[in-house]
Design a protein around this nucleic acid. Structure first.
Length: 464
RNA sequence: GAGGCUAUAGCUCAGUUGGUUAGAGCAUCAGAUUGUGGUUCUGAGGGUCGUGGGUUCGAGACCCAUUAGCCUCCCCA
């Protein structure tokens, strides 16, 4: 028999880990609800055609495809076709509906767009939804990168107002404030600004190449970026222009003013700057004083997903070596891919697995998550077991989480179980207690024990 | 798709230039202790040394292949 294992890039979550994860989910859910977003869930699998072509070439490669069922039952006349397509699938990155009609969800945004198009007549626009579900990517796992991970998204579709962008920035700030993650930076940029840069270089068609190179600025430095720009076909004059842009510094308004001067000749670029300025103005109306997360304009922020068209954001923390822990942006024509035109959307995503890893590394989960306040009743058997069951029922009906050791095992075995289980109180319903109609309560943290009347005991446990 | 590191008990890992019967800690089980857990003490069980081949009188160790995991680049949450 082989050792049991789980697929690469997936994880089991122990009770303690689940509690910590739920703490993050609950925090985010409360914020989403406070900002009046509505919950939505979509299937784990989508039709492959819904997903392909939405995430760029690299994205297509990373979609987890599901092998069609019933392939071996095909009619004779279909088998030739199947063999042909199967051969293609095996020989290169290729997918065919004949072999794979379905795929696992790659993110939450495209399924959301698909949902909006399918239910456009029932929805009240602007439609605000949040969604917390796992997604799958056939990527090579490494630190902070999993093949199955959860995203928590908030999107609003059907409104071009920059108030939406501002609210989403507030959601980020509020969330990382509540979770207590230090040194958080919400970087903000605009695809329109990037398009403006490409215009300045005289090569608007190379916008993607320019942004991909720019995105590496903090990793490989300006010299590296310049080299990459050259390789991607930007001329020297263009590279000089781009350097002027990356040299811009100061606070957000100073950066925007400097960029405005450089972008003077690009209407698109100027529009991007105006949008950023308005977004930041709305944000400062809505933001609370105590939120520490910085919101900063960063011209080198690119983001790979190719459906973004306006403001783009990405969240990082300097406290831990980790990729981005959130990202999002404006997509003007997302639903257009599914036939519904003129519907603009904007959204953000939280990478909760990375947030978990960051919080775990910094040890900033609240302590009460680990220590449950549960109660265990020792089982002394016979009439005492009856007595214990009666008390167990009374505790639960009062909302006290309690369990009875199910077997009349040796006393020290039951105590050892209670200790390992981490219960807060052990109740001892034995002969003496039963005869007096009382109960001995042992506080497992302090070791102190006292005998109480039943109502007194229940009241005491209700308040802990 | 490209590169690096690792694989020995349930877990974390020792194991000397290749040498007798492969060890430790933790965990598990039993006992000291049948109404008092955590600490302590005693004992027990548990291994095809990832898999296949090769070198050798002899391989956990050396060589080749293979599989899996971790990490880096690419890209991303």
């Amino acid at each position: 028999m082989s050792k049991p294992s789980i697929p690469q890039g997936t994880r089991d979550f122990s009770p303690e880990e689940v509690r910590k994860r739920q703490y993050i989910f609950n925090t985010l859910r409360n914020i989403f609800e406070t900002y009046s977003y509505q919950p939505l869930e979509t299937p784990a699998m989508e039709n492959l055609l819904t997903l392909t072509g939405k995430y760029g070439e690299e994205g297509d490669r990373l979609i987890f495809k599901i092998l069609n069922n019933g392939l071996h039952e095909k009619k004779e006349e279909d088998k030739g076709r199947l063999n042909e397509e199967w051969g293609k699938v095996l020989s290169k990155a290729y997918s065919s509906p004949v072999v794979t009609e379905r795929a696992l969800r790659y993110d939450l945004t495209i399924p959301f767009a698909r949902y909006v198009v399918m239910h456009q007549n029932e929805l009240a626009f602007p439609f605000r939804r949040y969604q917390m579900q796992p997604v799958w990517r056939a990527d090579r796992p490494q630190k902070g990168r999993y093949r199955e991970f959860w995203q928590c998204d908030a999107d609003v579709v059907g409104s071009t107002s920059l108030i939406n962008e501002a609210e989403l920035l507030c959601i980020y700030q509020s969330a990382f404030h509540q979770l207590g993650i230090p040194n958080v930076s919400v970087k903000i940029n605009s695809r329109k600004l990037l398009a403006g840069i490409a215009e300045l270089c005289g090569t608007p068609e190379l916008m993607m190449d320019i942004t991909i190179a720019l995105d590496k600025l903090d990793k490989i430095g300006w010299d590296g970026v310049a080299k990459e720009l050259q390789q991607r076909g930007i001329n020297d004059a263009g590279i000089t222009q781009i350097q002027k842009v990356t040299d811009v510094n100061g606070n957000n308004e100073e950066k925007l003013m400097a960029l405005e001067a450089i972008m003077d000749s690009s209407a698109t670029g100027l529009q991007g700057i105006a949008e950023l300025r308005q977004t930041l103005a709305y944000r400062s109306e809505l933001a609370e004083e105590q939120w520490e997360a910085k919101v900063e304009v960063d011209i080198s922020l690119a983001r790979g997903l190719n459906y973004y068209t306006g403001v783009i954001v990405e969240v990082t923390t300097g406290a831990v070596q980790m990729g981005s822990i959130g990202g999002g942006g404006r997509y003007d024509d997302l639903t257009g891919l599914f036939g519904l035109k003129n519907l603009s959307g904007v959204g953000v995503s939280f990478g909760i697995d990375r947030i978990y890893d960051v919080m775990e590394e910094l040890q900033i989960f609240p302590e009460h998550l680990a220590t449950g306040a549960s109660v265990m009743l020792v089982n002394f058997g016979g009439a005492n077991e009856q007595y214990a069951l009666h008390l167990l029922k009374a505790l639960r009906s009062e909302g006290v989480a309690a369990e009875l050791y199910p077997d009349a095992a040796k006393f020290d075995k039951q105590m050892k179980y209670a200790n390992k289980r981490g219960v807060a109180y052990v109740l001892l319903p034995g002969d003496e207690e039963r005869e007096k109609n009382m109960i001995s309560v042992k506080n497992f943290t302090t070791g102190k024990q006292e005998m109480l009347a039943l109502p007194e005991c229940i009241n005491m446990l209700k308040t802990v």
